[in-house]
């Protein structure tokens, strides 16, 4: 067998093994651990959204927490006023995330590179402050409580047990992962990588590149919004802290750890970041920030290519002929 084929087979096997472990997890670990894994999956979905912009399109962002928050609050509002059916919340939250991205995106689209990072950081921070101030919508710093247990599909009983909520979150995550994987293999996905690679040339070839970048921004907004809805379903509570600066920074860190452009890298990076914060953070109580900062410094200096780049040169081709 050719090395390429071996690699493809190995990747399938690893993927299947990971899936089996994820499915068996509620029988293997306790309720606290399973809720941690739920949080990891939500965070991985957010990281995939950041990766779509930062890794694939080449637009480094610290603002996806804003659309995550829009989705989380939309999910909470829909659940208390309209429907406790998860997919309904999910679709509306994704729509709200996309809409918020469509409104704010044009400002960010003025810039590229680090200036883009600067503007998205401001957008994220403004959303955070807004969440604390708009008492009528978000219940301010008290947080939005009273979110009912999520109903995965109409006619099924609400999911109260952590293990079952976990399955709902896992199903949504796999759906989102699959959709983004398709997107990256499509002509549109190739165009986004073209923006990162050489935007001027892409324009000369006939692409309205800003329109493509804005579309990517809206899709990433929808993804972050969907992740927000997953968060609401899992936590049944939303507070401004859920869309704080550290959330955006951690999501970007997860993508960098995973290696820019790699979806599985971003997911594993998300797991590492959440586990580090939740478990290691317990040992250095009260110094989560310190830990996070050290993690940033170490990653920047020691892992310039991230996890997916450790094993082999950065893979850029998704197309095989």
């Amino acid at each position: 067998m050719s090395p390429v084929l071996v690699r493809a087979v190995v990747r399938r096997l690893v993927g299947a093994a990971v899936l089996v472990v994820l499915l068996a997890l509620p029988w293997l670990v306790n309720a606290y651990a399973i809720s941690t894994v739920s949080r990891i999956l939500v965070f991985a979905a957010l990281a995939i959204s950041v990766n779509l912009l930062t890794g694939v399109t080449g637009l480094p962002t610290l603002g996806q927490s804003a659309y995550f928050g829009v989705g989380a609050y939309t999910g909470a509002i829909v659940s208390t006023t309209l429907s406790d059916v998860g997919p309904v919340q999910l679709v509306l939250a994704a729509g709200a995330g996309a809409l918020a991205a469509a409104v704010t995106g044009p400002v960010a689209m003025r810039a590229r590179g680090v200036a883009f990072l600067m503007i998205t950081l401001a957008i994220g921070e403004i959303a955070y402050v807004a969440a604390g101030r708009l008492d009528a919508v978000t219940y301010g710093t008290d947080g939005y409580s009273g979110v009912p247990a999520v109903v995965p599909l109409p006619g099924i009983a609400p999911l109260v047990i952590d293990g079952l909520v976990y399955y709902y979150v896992l199903a949504v995550f796999l759906l989102l992962y699959g959709l983004v994987a398709l997107l990256l293999r499509s002509p549109f996905g190739l165009a986004l990588r073209g923006i990162r690679d050489n935007e001027d040339r892409l324009r000369a070839v006939g692409y309205p590149t800003t329109a493509f970048a804005l579309a990517a921004y809206c899709i990433a907004g929808a993804l972050a919004g969907a992740a927000g809805s997953m968060w609401t379903s899992a936590q049944r509570f939303v507070a401004p802290g859920d869309l704080g600066f550290d959330v955006a920074a951690l999501a970007l860190l997860a993508v960098i750890i995973g290696g820019l452009g790699s979806m599985w890298g971003a997911s594993v990076g998300a797991a590492l970041v959440v586990l580090t914060r939740d478990y290691l953070g317990g040992y250095v109580a009260g110094h989560g920030l310190l830990l996070l900062g050290v993690l940033f410094v170490v990653v920047v200096y020691a892992m310039p290519r991230g996890l997916s780049g450790v094993r082999r040169p950065r893979r850029t081709s998704e197309v095989r002929a």
């Binding site: 050489n198 892409l202 950065r314 002929a321």
Partner: peptide, 10 residues
């Protein structure tokens, strides 16, 4: 001026 990180086919 090409897409240097992409393949020739891409």
């Amino acid at each position: 001026s090409l897409f240097l990180a992409s393949t020739v086919l891409e």
